[in-house]
Structure formats: structure tokens, C-alpha cells
Design a protein around this nucleic acid. Sequence first.
RNA 1: GAAGUGAGCCAAGCGGUCGCGGCGGAUUGUCUGAGUCGUUCGCACUGCGGAGAAAUUCGCACUGCGGCGAUUCGGCGUUUCGCCGAGGAAAGUCCGGGCUUCAAAGGACAAGGUGGUGGGUAACGCCCACCGGCCGCGAGGCCAGGGACAGUGCCACAGAAAACAAACCGCCUUGUGGUUUACUCCGCAAGGUAAGGGUGAAACGGUGCGGUAAGAGCGCACCAGCAGGCCGGGUGACCGGUCUGGCUCGGUAAACCCCACCUGAAGCAAGGCCAAGCAGAGAGCAAGGCGAGUCGCGCGAACUUCGGUUCGCAACGCUCGCCGCGACGCGGUCCGCGCCGGACGACUCUCGGGUCGGCUGCACGAGGCGGCGAGCAAUCGCCGUCCUAGAGGAAUGACCGCUCACGACAGAACCCGGCUUACCGGCUCACUUCGGGG
RNA 2: GGCGUCGUAGCCAAGUGGCUAAGGCAACGGAUUGCAAAUCCGUCACGCGUGGGUUCAACUCCCACCGACGCCU
Length: 140
Amino acid sequence: MTSLRGNQKFPKSVRVRSRLDFAAVYERGLRIGDACMALIALANEDSRTRLGLAVSKRCGNSVRRNRLKRRLREAFRLSRAELPTGLDLVIQPRANTPIQLAALRQSLISLTKRAAKKWAAQTRTSRADAASSDATPGAP
RNA sequence: GAAGUGAGCCAAGCGGUCGCGGCGGAUUGUCUGAGUCGUUCGCACUGCGGAGAAAUUCGCACUGCGGCGAUUCGGCGUUUCGCCGAGGAAAGUCCGGGCUUCAAAGGACAAGGUGGUGGGUAACGCCCACCGGCCGCGAGGCCAGGGACAGUGCCACAGAAAACAAACCGCCUUGUGGUUUACUCCGCAAGGUAAGGGUGAAACGGUGCGGUAAGAGCGCACCAGCAGGCCGGGUGACCGGUCUGGCUCGGUAAACCCCACCUGAAGCAAGGCCAAGCAGAGAGCAAGGCGAGUCGCGCGAACUUCGGUUCGCAACGCUCGCCGCGACGCGGUCCGCGCCGGACGACUCUCGGGUCGGCUGCACGAGGCGGCGAGCAAUCGCCGUCCUAGAGGAAUGACCGCUCACGACAGAACCCGGCUUACCGGCUCACUUCGGGG
RNA sequence: GGCGUCGUAGCCAAGUGGCUAAGGCAACGGAUUGCAAAUCCGUCACGCGUGGGUUCAACUCCCACCGACGCCU
């Protein structure tokens, strides 16, 4: 019960916050997406999965953008138990992204799982062909 | 009751669970970050005493730095409790200020802005009251409102003519040629004429009477307008009255311009502080010392067969011993003349520019609410009371229940005063017109 | 958050306050050709981003709004 409550929290340590972290994700992250949003994922050294949001002006006025960000944070908060660990995520919603929480949550989960699977595959191959690839630490 | 005008206010509400940001309290880890106290701890300076030929070393005392321990505060984190947590426009960034840095400290010019009068204000291009013009039956609304007699420019097309007016057609007079019953008609020339014509956005006052060859402010009356004088009212814009004059003057200054007044520039990504690494600048540039031996080089003297030889000096190099230090080591490169010396590099210390990061600026203010007073009002004064967002990849969301009018436009980012723009609707007050009733 | 530039046909664009607006590319129609290309001729702006205002008259001058782009980090 305590662990569930802990998982449902949303402290600052599970968010991508620094400019350098964002730059790293943009530079070396893996880009996937669906009709709802684009997601950029990068494996981090930590065991936690962190969330960052990048909502462009194309998504509407500031009230709509704020609402979208809040719903995405809420989707992330409610789904933390189901998400794979050890990833930095940056989410870019599209212009026609729906506002309904359930749709956002479903999209977030499936995209994140796909990203984790791809990272695992990539880490295996990079380990196989070169031991010198120290720049991309693999998820355990 | 219907239609409308103006001013102001509200921006769905209530409850529960979870989550987010800030502040405050408690809790418990950590960083030992800062201060204070302590120390049979370490190092350094200075002084005193002892040992050695010397370099040096040993002991004691004082001061400083470090280590360790205790304690207080602080930073970061855990758990937990309480309080607070977007707007009337938070928007556009169109004006005005505060604040900050830079510049100047006087005056003039340029450039830009404003433009009826009086008041309000920190200030404004804002607000209030009044004046003037236009619209509306009215309550009211709109206007942008200095100067066209300071000067310059422009007024297309059309029209005879578009600015110190002007004669195309027409009208009239005179002369003249022809013609006719007839100065009747036609033509030509000279002159008069702004009444009539069509054009245009705009054509140089309007109507009537007189006057005339025809006409004309040519004269007169009334009206409109201009300029000036006087009287009265008003702080003033201006208003009312009266007299005189020339008799009539186009529009455009959101064209240049003139007049009066205002304006230094940039903006919180301003600016300040802290730590880190990196350019750059300056300073230091030394730690090796003592003793002994010696091949070679060097210098000096003597001898010489002019090839050299011998002796001395010095201790650059080398070797050994001891001592010291930052310890497999103890001046790297170049110039130079062996010493001394100079330059560069490395190292150490200090200063320092922007950058990234952190802290700050950052929320008590031209503040809100209530009352009383001054004022037509905008607004101001006094008293009481309240503290009411402060993020930083950026806080207000999710779920459930209930109620209703079924929820518009829309999200703080240094802060205020305005303007403008967007907007589902609802409420209050005052007033107008029409209809009905008393 | 702040500062600045621009908006004219499908595209690139010129345009002193005075003609429902110069050009070029594209498109369409015609001529030419056996058929095309090239060439020649012609057509294409419901009013110059939108709405007000000044003016006799506005793409042009003034005000407000809308949209696009750039710079400061």
C-alpha cells in the first residue's frame, strides 16, 4: 500500500529538468511516435524513468497547452507502475492530440514499452560488436 | 409592460479521495557547508636552551593553519501536519511611470510625439467637467477640435476657367459688310458683362426690390459669413448684445511647415553576488648544501725541438660520504662568457572578462476592504482593518457525489496606472421614449 | 519575457495620394505545327491581410486588429 502510494507520487526527481538532459535526449535519443504524440527516449544511468514535455504553439493557445501538459503528467503519474524503468522520455504532442486522459495514457504506455524494447535490442548488438561503446550505457 | 441609454459588479457552486508549487511547524538521514568550544594529534614562524667542524638536528614556550571530537545554525533529502495558490481581460505590447545599468550633467539643433479650455494624477496619447461641430424624438452618442492673413506645394478626369482669377457659349453696345416692310436677320472687328449654360468633390455669398445698353454689392432691405471696436457674463475655451468696415476671402497641415508643450538610451534575457573550469594580465622563478678525490676542458706562469711538457689556480663536469627537501627525483629550452645575468616554458600565488550553474532582483504596493469628510465629477485627505500566487523544461490537475441558469473568452513570469482587442451569460442602480392603469 | 521586419493574382514581385494596379513564371483559350517544344496574340486581382478614420479621391497617410518571419538565451 505504501509502495503504491509512493509510486503514484510525482516528485521533481522523476522529471527531465535540466537543459543538458534535454539536449542529451534530443541528440542521442530514439524517436518513435503514433497518431497522438511523438516520443524521444534515452536510457539513463538511473533506475527511474523520467518525463519531460515539449509542447509547441501549434497545439493551441496557452490554456489548451497547459491542459495538455497537466493531463500528460497525470497520465505518467497514474501509469508509473506499468512503465519500464531507466528511461528519459521527452514527449511532443501533435496539433491534433486529443485531450482525453485515457487516450493519452494508453498511447504513453504503448510507446514507452516499444522504446524500451528497442533499447534492449540495441544494447545487445552494441555489446556484441564493440566493448568500447561507453557513451551509451545500457539498461540492465 | 415594451423598446432603449448610461454607470458599476459577478465570471457556476458545495463536499470527499489522490497529486503539484510556496510558506510555516514537527520528524529523521546526509553534506561535516559556516560559527563556537575542546585537544598527551600534525605542520609552520619566532624566541630560549642543548648536540655537531658545518649543513642541520633535539627539547620547551607563544602564535597561526590543519586533523579529530562536541554543540548551534544552514543546504539537500525522507515522513507528516496546517495555511495559501491565475484574470477581467492575466492577452495585444499601443502609451505612461517605478526599478536597474550606461551616458550626460549648460545651451542650441535634429528626430519623434501631443494639440479646444479648466481640473485630476507619480505620469500619460488616460480620466472628469465644461466649450464648439455633427447624429438621435429623447436619455445620450460620435468627433478630434491650434494656425491656410508666415511661407512652399498639391487639387487627377471633366470643364471656358481650379486660385493676386478668368470671357468658351450666351447677353448687350458701337463700328462695318450684306440683307429686310422693319437695326429685321446673318457675318466680321472692337469693347462691356459674372445674371444664364454644361463640368466637377469644389466655380468667388443667398432672396427680393431698385438700377442698367446688358449686367454686376453698383445701391438698398433682410439673411449667412468675415474682420475690428465697445458693453455684459465666465478662471478660461467661449457665449449674449451692439456698432462700424470692406462688401465676400476655396479645400488640403492624419502634405511640408509655423506656434505651444513634452521626450537621454536600453531594458529583469536589466542588474548584483557566489563557486567551477578555460582564454588573458601581473608577481614569484627558487632547494640544494657541506666535506673529500679526480680524467678532460679553461685560465695563468715557466720551459720548448713551437708539436707540446711541467707546475699552480678554480671546482664547470664526474665520483664518493654526510645532511636537507616537495624523494627511482632535485634548473627544461635558448641567448651568452666559466661565474654573475637575460628571455621563454613549466609550476605557485594574485587579478580578471565573458560563458554554463547556483543565489538574488521577487512581491508591503502610487495595495485591497470599510467608514467619515472635501469636490458637480475624475480624484484627494483622515481613521480603522487585512497581508491575499511567486513558478523556473516552468505549480491549479485526475476521479467520485449533489445542485443549477449546463458553464464564454481565456493562464501570472519584475511591478503598477491606462488604452485597445476577445467574451456564454447573469445581477444592481439611474435615466429616456411609447403604451396601459390609478 | 523583450525587440524588430514584412503582408499586392497559384508563385516571385514593381507601384509619387489621381486609370478596378507594371512586369516575370505558372494556368487557360487561340494562332503556328503532321504532333509537340519554342514563338506570337489574348484571358486571369468579387479591390492590394482585416476593420475604421483623414481626404473630393487611399495599395499609398493615420489608428486599431489579424497573420507570417527574424533577433536577444
